[in-house]
């Protein structure tokens, strides 16, 4: 295990807690993504890992050594920011070699050339940051962080200043590079697509708590909390009544679920995979196409079902239904496996 975080707790003011009881770990070479809406405290967590913020409680261990209160410069953890934070008064070469210390000048230049080549920046060696495009600046920032060969690099919303197409290519390149060099990384992002794209494991931070940690597939298909079902999942529920023995009565019929006995009224989570669309007359519920959008391989439809008086949104289908067309919607209750307490 490379990095272990146990029960980390942080607050800026006594009454204003940023997060608490935060625990997760990272294997050597693993890429971890921390996903959460803005203001959820994920940047503060990163600052704690880098050593710029002091947690009030808990422990951070890197390679078996406790580093919770170690000065940032002694941790050997790389850092890449959203705004790149290149040193504007230093050239690309000087930026990249800035973190190379206690090695000969020759070795410095060699390492720099190696990175310039790796990042396709050879022609920019002598340029200054303001002469580079956003994508190039970002590559320099990553090269600078990688130069001292840290075992862990933290990326703070590192791609959000780039335009979408560039973001995607750079992400893939970087992922390959991290794998090649066996460097571990923690990415912080508010962009779900980015998290799914990058992270082998994803942690979702919300309301000061780590809601769920796991592979993208698990987060998507079996959210553990209502927030997760809303944030990552389909955000579609139906109200049900629990008989106390695992049987939930809903408008869709009775569904067998594993839930706590004392829950009475529940929100039954409907994952995307439970829905299917059919031509009129071929499915379970009568409905009408209310919205459609083309997604490349498939379409996404919002369907209104009068019988349930409910909209079902973002249903994927490869067929081209017309706007306003009558369709049928089937809901496979076999795919339904979660329900959450209903508070309202």
């Amino acid at each position: 295990m490379l990095l272990q975080i146990e029960n980390l707790q942080h607050s800026y003011a006594p009454s204003k807690e940023t997060f608490s009881y935060l625990s997760f770990s990272l294997d050597a070479g693993e890429i971890f993504c921390l996903l959460g809406p803005s203001g959820c405290g994920k940047s503060t967590l990163l600052q704690c890992l880098a050593g710029f913020e002091k947690p009030q409680a808990g422990q951070v261990t890197l390679k078996g050594k406790e580093i919770t209160h170690l000065a940032p410069e002694k941790r050997g953890i790389g850092l890449v920011f959203q705004d790149y934070s290149l040193f504007p008064h230093l050239s690309v070469e000087q930026n990249i070699t800035y973190g190379l210390r206690h090695i000969s000048k020759h070795a410095k230049i060699e390492r720099c050339l190696e990175l310039l080549k790796l990042f396709n920046l050879e022609s920019h060696q002598k340029k200054f940051p303001h002469e580079l495009s956003g994508g190039e600046q970002q590559r320099v920032a990553i090269a600078r962080a990688m130069a001292p060969k840290p075992e862990l690099i933290l990326f703070d919303e590192a791609f959000s200043n780039l335009d979408p197409s560039l973001r995607k290519t750079l992400r893939q390149e970087l992922k390959d590079l991290l794998h090649e060099t066996k460097t571990s990384a923690i990415f912080i992002t508010h962009d779900q697509e980015e998290a799914f794209d990058l992270g082998e494991n994803i942690g979702v931070l919300y309301n000061g708590r780590l809601q769920q940690v796991g592979a993208a597939y698990d987060l998507y298909h079996s959210p553990q909390t209502e927030f997760m079902a809303r944030f990552i999942g389909s955000n579609q529920f139906i109200i049900g009544e629990h008989n106390g023995e695992g049987l939930v009565k809903t408008q869709l019929g009775d569904i067998q679920l594993e839930i706590s006995k004392d829950l009475n009224e529940v929100l039954v989570y409907l994952p995307y995979s439970a829905f299917s669309l059919h031509h009129s007359g071929e499915g379970e519920f009568r409905g009408k196409i209310k919205r459609k959008s083309f997604q490349g391989e498939t379409y996404r439809y919002d369907v209104f079902v009068p019988e349930l008086n409910k909209d079902f949104s973002q249903i994927q289908d490869s067929r081209d239904f017309k706007w306003g067309e009558d369709v049928d919607l089937s809901i496979n209750t076999q795919k339904i496996n979660r329900a959450f307490p209903r508070f309202i």
């Binding site: 880098a50 050593g51 710029f52 000065a71 940032p72 410069e73 002694k74 941790r75 050997g76 953890i77 790389g78 850092l79 920011f81 705004d83 934070s85 290149l86 040193f87 800035y98 973190g99 210390r101 600078r144 962080a145 130069a147 001292p148």
Partner: peptide, 14 residues
């Protein structure tokens, strides 16, 4: 800016 200072310290400069 704080970021530039942090970048420097993360690269091992006290």
């Amino acid at each position: 800016g704080e970021r530039m200072i942090q970048a420097s310290r993360a690269l091992g400069h006290n």
